[in-house]
Design a protein around this nucleic acid. Structure first.
Length: 838
RNA sequence: GCCCGGGUGGCGGAACGGCAGACGCGGCGGACUCAAAAUCCGCUGUCCGAAAGGGCGUGUGGGUUCGAAUCCCACCCCGGGCACCA
């Protein structure tokens, strides 16, 4: 016999309720922020929550969903806390994949990209993420191109832009430049031709001007320590000395009239152990310093590096024998006054320091390996400890073998020896102390079509000229043909190429390089503040209100490049007057969420292992998917898609629905009147839930928040099914409170249930506040340990004194058997623990 | 190779230096059902034991501590980044 009541209960059908709520959020403009209302608000009433804008690769994959769920939860949470929350969205819409698609299919990247943006926008709406869509920015919007180009020109005027030669990956078969990603095992992924390194004149941003500030300001932002550490290491500040090694003549004496070879070292204290020197194979003085009989070997060595990546070159794996070559020349170690051989080695880079090093095999493992391979001398200048069984010794210890007539370091520890050696180098006029950074200037030119054109003009008479502002935006043309080789169509488009010189009005040609897409993403967060403004790139008044971004959310894979470039842009914009000078950092707090992996590897469009959320949403609903994302792992960690527990989450939402629905079969008979002990328990648990969820949301512990919801719901099921049933008021408060706490996580079902319970719009409701008095616990389970092992548990009053706690523990029968006479020591941590050391 | 993370039951995970394994998945059992599904309730680290109870247990090896998953050192394995994928 079927229960007639149960058939009448409306079922939880996410596909029925979710679209309605999504439409409502759009229609009501709940998450839109009007700039004209911002002026009257205090900074504390305004929040700026931003998830990194996505590259539009098509419909969202599950990695996107994870990212945007975290951000959406925060937007909704802060909104319920009474804040005005700026939550914009945009698309990083320039880039290689659209160009590759164009080469394959002939479809113009613009229409291709716009279609992908539509798909991605639609999936973002379908997961229930809320944005102020009116502020949408696409990197390829003409307006955004215009301001991007204006910023470039302003930086150019300020001396933050320059040109120099730099190597690119060149495919001789395709006659085009390849991205690193397009080089597979040294071959072109399109044509399989070998890829060589070729020098080209390219554009750079002078990010190194900001190296010290980029380093220092890390101390003032709330970012994960690991990201700060990665950025510090990337900037790579080192203190050392730069000095000259005189070129030796045939007799081994310093040659006159030839400038010495400049080297940089962080360990000037080890100079007495310098037994050879090494130049980068690209060093400008290689030709000058190569002897006739070594010329052939040097040329062959240089040639062998054409197809070697920097990672290969810096790697210490592989046989060192083929990684260097003797130049045939010697230089003089100015400290020992002896001639030492000069080599080239692949692991010395022109981009760092002076492009030449002094080699000290005794204290540097790579130099040690090199010395062994080439039969060079090894002199220790730091005494290793007696039990040291390694090769090069890089640790601290007293200096040895380190004295000449004027300088004696022997016996000094490294720091002292370093200071003294540096002083001496300066006094002896050999060189100067020097701070170096590993950070290199930002190469922003790309030999591509689908990017923001660099607004420069080449005139045969006037040279390089900035494009006039009236030309902006300079857009990539629509009538282009993509060649199968991947060459940029800009190189052949006469309409784009031909212009006139802004100075002499003679025919001139446009720059065909476009900007790195990291340029677009380096300031979009500033444009979101007032994307409609056509007077200025950044609305400074509003920027003062909104900036810095209170919470920036994105993948850990952006820990270095994007986040460093955005920090640089923010500082440069402030210094060039384009943004308020006080805004030195873009993102006050950063959260880097882990990646969603598939079969253990990174999920990406290029690997073809993405999972579309659409089917999951159709089958289980967006709320179940959101909940599964929150539940499966701490947000900071990588997660395998296989581990998502959608079924369990959907089941939980069904349980919630059944319990919270006004016509629930579980709540047909409820008590009123006097509260019982059980009611008080539930009430206290409700206040504890408020406390716990608030703290979990604040500390990004969403998986434990979901556990708390499930635990609480299980408790309520027991409560309503108990013999004496639930008290109507207690239960209503418990359920309404939980729905409010869950609203940021699962916005559709909570919106629907609260509306059906006639409790209003949960998303506009105030965030619940716990009653401190109800959080007080009066009884605690005290742990009694003997030698660190748990032997008893005793319920004690929360305010128990140390003396009483100890007496209780010693008197415990369970403990007696483990004690042999007087305890040696008793550690008391009342009321939680007593440890007896027997 | 270098820089940065991570490693806890069958699985995802929880745990201010203080009860290891919350919560979920899976599994097992029970209730309901003619039956099944769904739902509801219970059990579920491992070894010994009928049970009570006890031993062992957080990648491996050492250390600090009254007490270590947590702090330190070394090693192994997995992931991210390495400057033109974004």
């Amino acid at each position: 016999m079927a229960d007639p009541a149960s058939t009448e209960i409306p079922r939880y059908r996410p596909t029925d309720i979710e679209p309605r709520w999504q439409q409502r959020w759009l229609d009501d403009g709940t998450y839109e922020v009007d700039n004209d209302k911002i002026a009257s608000l205090d900074a504390d009433q305004v929040r700026y929550v931003l998830s990194m804008y996505p590259y539009p690769s098509g419909p969202a994959h599950i990695g996107h969903v994870r990212n945007y769920t975290f951000g959406d939860l925060l937007v909704r949470y802060h909104t319920m806390n009474g804040k005005t929350v700026l939550s914009p969205i945009g698309f990083d819409s320039f880039g290689l994949p659209a160009e590759n698609a164009a080469i394959k299919s002939g479809e113009h990247p613009r229409s291709f990209t716009n279609a992908r943006i539509e798909e991605l926008s639609s999936s973002l709406r379908r997961i229930g993420a809320v944005y102020d869509w009116r502020r949408m920015i696409k990197s390829h919007d003409p307006d955004y191109i215009l301001w991007n180009q204006r910023l470039f020109l302003t930086f150019y005027e300020s001396g933050l832009v320059y040109r120099k030669n730099s190597p690119v990956n060149w495919c001789s078969g395709c006659q085009t430049v390849l991205a690193n990603e397009q080089v597979v095992d040294g071959l072109c992924e399109r044509s399989d031709d070998p890829v060589e390194r070729r020098d080209m004149e390219q554009w750079f941003y002078r990010i190194t001007d900001y190296a010290q500030e980029l380093l220092d300001d890390l101390d003032h932002i709330e970012w994960p320590d690991r990201v700060k550490t990665m950025q510090r290491n990337w900037i790579g500040r080192s203190e050392g000395a730069q000095f000259g090694l005189p070129i030796a003549d045939a007799d081994g004496n310093a040659r006159t009239g030839t400038p010495p070879l400049e080297v940089y070292t962080t360990r000037p204290d080890t100079s007495f152990g310098m037994t050879f020197a090494v130049m980068s194979p690209e060093h400008p003085r290689v030709d000058e310093l190569t002897s006739a009989d070594q010329l052939e070997a040097v040329r062959a060595f240089q040639k062998s590096l054409d197809n070697k990546s920097e990672i290969d070159r810096l790697s210490t794996a592989g046989n060192i024998e083929k990684r260097g070559v003797f130049t045939g020349s010697h230089v003089v170690n100015p400290v020992t006054n002896t001639a030492i051989p000069l080599y080239l080695a692949d692991y010395v880079l022109t981009t760092y320091g002076t492009g030449a090093i002094m080699a000290v095999p005794g204290q540097d493992q790579r130099d040690w390996d090199f010395a062994k391979a080439y039969g060079l001398d090894i002199i220790r200048t730091v005494q290793p400890p007696d039990d040291f069984d390694g090769e090069a010794f890089t640790g601290d210890g007293p200096a040895i073998n380190s004295a000449n007539e004027k300088l004696d370091l022997n016996g000094m520890e490294v720091a002292e020896a370093k200071a003294k050696a540096t002083d001496w180098i300066e006094e002896a006029n050999l060189g100067t102390r020097q701070i170096n950074f590993r950070l290199r200037d930002w190469l922003l030119s790309r030999q591509r079509f689908w990017g923001c054109p660099i607004p420069m003009i080449y005139c045969d008479d006037c040279g390089l000229r900035p494009a006039p502002l009236s030309d902006l935006p300079i857009e990539a043309p629509d009538d282009v043909e993509f060649r199968p080789t991947g060459e940029s169509p800009l190189l052949y488009h006469e309409g784009f190429l031909n212009t006139t010189c802004p100075d002499c009005a003679k025919p001139a040609r446009r720059e065909t390089d476009t900007m790195d897409t990291f340029v677009d993403s380096s300031w979009y967060f500033l444009r979101f503040i007032d994307p409609w403004n056509m007077d200025t790139a950044v609305n400074s008044d509003l920027a003062e209100k909104f900036m810095p971004v209170d919470q920036y959310i994105g993948g850990i894979e952006h820990a270095i490049l994007h986040l460093m470039y955005a920090r640089f842009f923010t500082k440069a914009l402030a210094d060039t007057g384009l943004a308020p000078s006080g805004i030195r950092e873009p993102f006050r707090r950063l959260f880097t969420q882990g990646m969603v992996r598939m079969g253990g590897g990174k999920m990406s469009k290029s690997k073809g292992n993405t999972v579309a959320p659409e089917e999951t949403i159709d089958a289980h609903g967006a709320d179940a998917l959101r909940l599964a994302i929150l539940q499966v792992k701490p947000p900071a960690e990588d997660v395998d898609y296989e581990d998502f527990q959608i079924d369990g989450c959907e089941r939980f939402l069904q349980r919630l629905w059944r319990l919270a629905l006004p016509e629930s079969d579980l709540t047909t008979n409820m008590r009123t009147g006097e509260l019982t002990a059980a009611d008080t328990e539930i009430d206290k648990a409700t206040h504890h839930l408020i406390d716990r969820i608030t703290r979990d949301y604040e500390r990004w512990s969403y998986n434990t928040a979901v556990a708390a919801f499930m635990e609480f719901t299980n408790g309520l099921y027991k409560y309503v099914q108990a013999d004496d049933g639930a008290h109507a008021d207690t239960l209503a408060f418990a359920i309404d409170t939980m729905l409010a706490l869950m609203a940021p996580a699962v916005p559709h079902i909570t919106g629907e249930l609260v509306e059906r319970r006639q409790s209003g719009n949960v998303h506009l409701a105030a965030w619940p506040v716990a009653d401190e008095a109800k959080l007080v616990v009066d009884t605690v389970t005290m742990i009694v340990q003997v030698n660190g092992k748990v032997r008893d548990r005793i319920d004690v009053p929360a305010e128990i004194s140390d003396t009483d706690a100890e007496a209780l523990a010693i008197g415990s029968e369970a403990v007696a058997g483990y004690l042999d006479g007087e305890p040696k020591k008793v550690i008391v941590r009342a009321p939680k623990l007593v440890n007896i050391v027997a």
